[in-house]
Write a protein that binds this DNA or RNA. Structure first.
Length: 818
DNA sequence: TCCTGAAAGCTTTTT
DNA sequence: GCTTTCAGGA
C-alpha cells in the first residue's frame, strides 16, 4: 500500500493503481479527478519506477498542464523529500500539455518528415480566415455568396474529421466550393510555411499513421498516456491516441478520464461518443466510475442531477456527497440585464458583508461574452473588484496581432498573411493597389511576396544569388509598380532587412529587445500613442506582451538545438488560451463564460441569462437538432456543478439584444428543477397569467423579500443603482420594436398589442396576417404580421404553436405558404 | 492613398 | 448597440 493512495476512496485508489492496460474513468464533477490524475503520475514514477520521460499527460489547457506539473512535483516532494542532488526535479522529461502543444512539439522535431521549413509558424483563427479570403480572391469566388468564415468553418470541421483534400467529397454546391478552397488553402499554408490549428492534429496523425519509424519512435517515447477531459476529444485527437497506444508495439497503456455530461465542445468537433468508441476499441479495458462529489452541497448536486438526467445516451451516474444539504438554490427574475447585474452585485455585497466570503469566491457565468457588459458596468459602479476572462482575447487584439505579425515575418519570411497585415501598418504609402500588384507579380515570378519585396529592393540578380536559385525571366523585367509605390516598398524592405539581420545574428538579449526595435523603428508606437486613452490602452497591452517576450532570452533551453528564443516565443503565444489567465488568487470576482468555467470551482456561482434564446442559445433552439439542445443542457450542468456552496440562477423579464428590448421566457431548464430545491421560484403558469406573489428573500431578509412581492407585476426587484421604471404594470404592454432581433418571445401583453397592429402596408409582400405557413424546423404556424424591411426583404412574424412567436426573414427562412 | 461618415452585419461557445 | 466594412471626397 502506497502513501500516495492514502486518503483516496476505493474507486479513486483503483484508478490510480491500475497502471497497465486501457482504463476508462468516468468522473462526475468534483469527484477528485485532478487528484486522481496527479496521484497517478506520482504513483507511476515513485511506486512503479516508470521514468517520467515515458509518460505523457494531455490536459485541456496549458494552464491545467502547468498546474498538474506543479502538483505532481509537490506530492513527490512532500512524500519523498527533495529531489536527488544534481537533478532539478523528479519530473525531468515528463510531458504534460494540450493535444495541440504536444502535436506542435512532435511536428517541430519532425519538420523534415512533413516537408516544411523548420521555421514554420502556427496560424490562429483570424489568420486562417484571412488566408481563406486570399485564396478565394485568387479563385474568383464571391465572398458575399460564400462567406470566408463559413467556408473556413467547414474546412476546419473536415480537417478535424481527418478528411484530407484528396479524400474530400462534396454533397452540395457549397461543399463543392469549400472543397476547391480547401485544396488551395492547404497549398497556400505550405507556401506560407505555416500550419493552422487543425493541421497540428491532422498532420501529426497522418505522420504517425503513414510513417512506421516515426510512430514507433513516439510509442517508445511515451508508453504511458493519460488524457483528461476525454469527452471533449475530436476524431483527430482520438485517432492520435489510438496510434500512439497501438501497433506495432501495442502497449495500450491508455488512461482516459472524462465525463460525457460535461461535453461542451461539439461545435469544435468534440464527440463524447469517443467514450463509446473507447469501450469498443478496448473491450478489455477497466472502467471506473467516480460518483462521490467533494465539491458541492447535496442541493446543488440534486439540481445538477435533475437537469442532466433528461439527456439520453449517457452513462447514468448518481452524484452524492457528504457535504450536507446546504442552502436552496436561488432563482431570481430581474427586470432587465441592468437589474440582473444589480442583483448579482447586491448579493455579492451582501455575502461579502457577512465576512464569510471573499471577492475571489465568486464567479458570474454566462452563455455569451456579450453578456458581460452589463455586469461590468454594475461592478465598476459599486467598485467591486472583478476579473473578466476572455471578452476580447488578449492575443486577438489588433495591436498584439500586429506586433506578433512583425515578429513572425522576421522569423518566417514566407508568411504572406503576416506580411500583408503589417506592410501598411502604420500607413506608409503601400495601399491595397500596391499590395495586390506585388502579390500578382510575385505569383507570376513564382516567389513569395516577401521575396518579391526583396527583388524590388535589391534587384533580381542579388536576390537570385541569395536564394540560391534561378528566377523566372519575368523577375528581370521592371516590376509593374509606380515610382512612389516602389520607393515606399524599398524603404519598408530596408527596415525588414535590418531587423532580420539583427534576428538572424542573435544580436538581441531577449525577444523584448527585438520587439522594442521593431515597434519603434516601424513607427508603430508613435502612431499608436496618439494622445487618446484608447491609444494608451493599446500601448499598455503591448507592454504586457513585452513582459512576456522578455522571458524569452538567449540561452534558454530549447527543444531543438537551433531553435531561437523568437521561435519559442512565437510557438508559445500561438498556443495559449484565455483560461490560462485565470488566477484564483486574484482576490476579485471572476466573470467568465460557461465554457471557460469548465474545470473550475467557486464557493458562490451565478448563472445569469437563464432564458430561452440565451441558455439554451437561440442557435440551438432554431437548429432543431436535439444534440444541440442536449449540449446546452450539459453546459448548464457544467455551470451548476461549479458551485461549492451557493448557486444563483438568474433570468430577466426583458433583455436588450442588438439594441432592441425583447421580452424573455425563463429557460426551459428551470422547469426541470424540482421546486423544493429552489427558493424564489416563480410559478410559471401564474407568471404567464400576469399575477403572482413571489418571495425573493433567500436567507432571512424579510424586509427585502416583502418590498418586492407587493404588486404582482413583472418587475420584482429594486436596486440601489438602477431605479425601476415608473409603473411596473406598464412594462409588458410595450411591444418589442420591429427591427433588429430575429428572436423574441413576448409575454401575453406584448403579444396582444402586437396582434392588434394593422398589417404592414407594403405592396409586394408575400405573406399577410392569418396566413398558414410551414417552416423546416418550427413546423406549421400562423402569420401575425408581415412587413417590408428597409433593405427590400420581408419580415414575417409567425406564431408557431408549441414553439412560440418567431420573426423570420423571408429571404432566409424558407417559409412555405399553405 | 488615406480619412471620414454611413451602412451593414453581427453573437455562440475556443484549442 | 457596437464594430467592421464600404463608398466617396481630399
Amino acid at each position: 500500500m502506497s502513501k500516495i493512495t492514502d486518503n483516496l476512496n476505493e474507486p479513486q485508489k483503483r484508478a490510480v493503481e491500475t497502471v497497465a492496460g486501457p482504463v476508462l474513468v468516468l468522473a462526475g464533477p468534483g469527484s477528485g479527478k485532478t487528484r486522481v490524475l496527479t496521484r497517478r503520475i506520482a504513483y507511476m514514477i515513485e511506486e512503479k519506477g516508470i521514468a517520467p520521460w515515458n509518460i505523457a499527460a494531455v490536459t485541456f489547457t496549458n494552464k491545467a498542464a502547468g498546474e498538474m506539473r506543479e502538483r505532481v512535483a509537490l506530492i513527490l516532494q512532500e512524500m519523498y523529500g527533495a529531489p536527488p542532488a544534481g537533478q532539478p526535479t523528479r519530473l525531468g522529461g515528463l510531458t504534460i500539455g494540450t493535444f495541440h502543444s504536444i502535436c506542435a512539439r512532435i511536428l517541430r522535431v519532425e519538420t523534415a518528415a512533413i516537408g516544411f521549413q523548420p521555421n514554420w509558424v502556427i496560424y490562429d483563427s483570424a489568420d486562417q480566415v484571412a488566408l481563406v479570403r486570399a485564396v478565394m480572391r485568387d479563385l474568383n469566388l464571391d465572398e458575399k455568396r460564400y462567406p470566408p468564415k463559413a467556408i473556413h468553418a467547414h474546412i476546419s470541421k473536415r480537417k478535424n474529421d481527418l478528411v484530407t483534400p484528396e479524400e474530400y467529397r462534396s454533397a452540395s454546391y457549397f461543399e463543392e466550393i469549400a472543397g476547391r478552397v480547401y485544396r488551395s488553402y492547404q497549398e497556400a499554408l505550405r507556401a506560407n510555411n505555416a500550419l493552422d490549428f487543425d493541421d497540428l492534429l491532422l498532420r501529426t496523425v497522418l505522420l504517425l499513421r503513414d510513417n512506421l519509424d516515426v510512430r514507433v519512435k513516439y510509442q517508445r517515447k511515451w508508453p504511458y498516456l493519460l488524457v483528461d477531459e476525454f469527452q471533449d476529444t475530436n476524431s483527430a485527437q482520438y485517432e492520435l491516441l489510438r496510434l500512439l497506444a497501438g501497433e506495432p508495439t501495442n502497449q495500450r497503456n491508455l488512461f482516459v478520464v472524462g465525463d460525457e455530461d460535461q461535453s461542451i465542445y461539439r461545435f469544435r468537433g468534440a464527440d463524447y461518443r469517443n467514450v463509446q468508441l473507447f469501450r469498443r476499441d478496448y473491450p478489455d479495458h477497466v472502467e471506473i466510475l467516480l460518483e462521490q462529489n467533494y465539491r458541492s452541497t447535496q442541493t446543488i448536486l440534486d439540481v445538477a442531477n435533475a437537469l442532466i438526467s433528461q439527456n439520453r445516451n449517457r452513462t447514468p451516474k448518481r452524484l452524492h456527497t457528504e457535504n450536507g444539504q446546504g442552502v436552496p438554490v436561488m432563482v431570481y427574475e430581474a427586470y432587465n440585464e441592468v437589474e440582473e447585474a444589480a442583483f448579482v452585485a447586491d448579493e455579492i455585497e451582501k455575502l461579502l458583508a457577512t465576512k464569510a466570503f471573499q471577492p475571489g469566491d465568486f464567479a458570474v457565468t454566462y452563455r455569451t461574452n456579450a453578456q458581460s457588459r452589463a455586469l461590468e458596468e454594475a461592478f465598476v459602479m459599486r467598485q467591486i473588484k472583478y476579473k473578466l476572462i476572455g471578452a476580447t482575447r488578449f492575443y486577438e487584439r489588433k495591436e498584439i496581432k500586429d506586433a506578433l505579425a512583425y515578429l513572425r515575418v522576421l522569423h518566417n519570411p514566407a508568411d504572406a498573411v503576416s506580411l500583408e497585415r503589417i506592410i501598411n501598418e502604420p500607413p506608409r504609402g503601400i495601399g491595397a493597389k500596391t499590395v495586390e500588384a506585388l502579390r500578382l507579380w510575385a505569383a507570376e515570378i513564382g516567389v513569395t511576396p516577401g521575396e518579391a519585396l526583396q527583388i524590388v529592393h535589391h534587384g533580381p540578380q542579388r536576390v537570385a544569388l541569395q536564394l540560391g536559385r534561378t528566377l523566372s525571366p519575368t523577375a528581370y523585367k521592371a516590376p509593374p509598380l509606380g515610382a512612389r509605390a516602389q520607393n515606399a516598398l524599398i524603404e519598408f524592405a530596408g527596415l525588414l532587412e535590418t531587423w532580420t539581420t539583427t534576428e538572424r545574428s542573435g544580436q538581441y538579449a531577449s525577444v523584448a529587445d527585438l520587439l522594442d526595435v521593431v515597434l519603434a523603428e516601424s513607427g508603430y508606437i508613435a502612431t499608436l500613442r496618439d494622445g487618446t486613452d484608447e491609444g494608451e490602452d493599446r500601448f499598455a497591452n503591448l507592454q504586457e506582451l513585452r513582459s512576456v517576450a522578455a522571458q524569452y532570452t538567449q540561452g534558454m533551453p530549447a527543444l531543438q538545438p537551433q531553435q531561437s528564443p523568437l521561435s519559442l516565443f512565437l510557438e508559445e503565444v500561438s498556443l495559449v488560451s484565455d483560461s490560462d489567465q485565470i488566477d484564483e488568487s486574484a482576490g476579485a470576482v471572476t466573470l467568465l463564460t460557461l465554457h471557460t468555467a469548465k474545470g473550475l470551482e467557486y464557493p458562490v456561482v451565478f448563472i445569469v441569462g437563464m432564458e430561452e434564446g440565451i441558455l439554451p442559445h437561440s442557435r440551438s433552439l432554431e437548429s432543431g437538432d436535439p444534440e444541440d439542445m442536449a449540449e446546452e443542457r450539459r453546459l448548464t450542468y457544467v455551470g451548476v456543478t461549479r458551485a461549492k456552496k451557493r448557486l444563483y440562477l438568474v433570468h430577466c423579464f426583458r433583455r436588450s439584444l442588438w439594441g432592441d428590448s425583447a421580452v424573455q421566457q425563463p429557460s426551459r431548464f428551470l422547469d426541470d428543477i424540482p421546486p423544493d430545491l429552489l427558493s424564489g421560484m416563480v410559478d410559471r403558469q401564474r407568471r404567464r397569467e400576469g399575477s403572482y406573489q413571489r418571495v425573493t428573500s433567500w436567507d432571512g431578509d424579510p424586509a427585502r423579500g416583502q418590498s418586492r412581492s407587493q404588486t404582482g407585476g413583472y418587475w420584482t426587484g429594486r436596486s440601489k443603482s438602477a431605479p425601476p421604471p415608473s409603473t411596473p404594470a406598464q412594462l409588458p404592454s410595450k411591444a418589442p420594436s420591429t427591427s433588429g432581433s430575429t428572436y423574441w418571445s413576448p409575454g401575453a401583453g406584448a403579444q396582444a398589442q402586437k396582434a392588434n397592429r394593422p398589417a404592414a402596408t407594403g405592396d409586394a409582400l408575400k405573406f399577410k396576417r392569418r396566413d398558414s405557413v410551414q417552416h423546416a424546423s418550427f413546423g406549421i404556424g400562423t402569420v401575425i404580421e408581415s412587413e417590408a424591411t428597409r433593405d427590400g426583404d420581408e419580415q414575417v412574424t409567425v406564431a408557431f404553436p408549441g414553439v412560440g412567436i418567431k420573426k423570420l426573414l423571408v429571404s432566409l427562412a424558407n417559409l412555405k405558404k399553405l
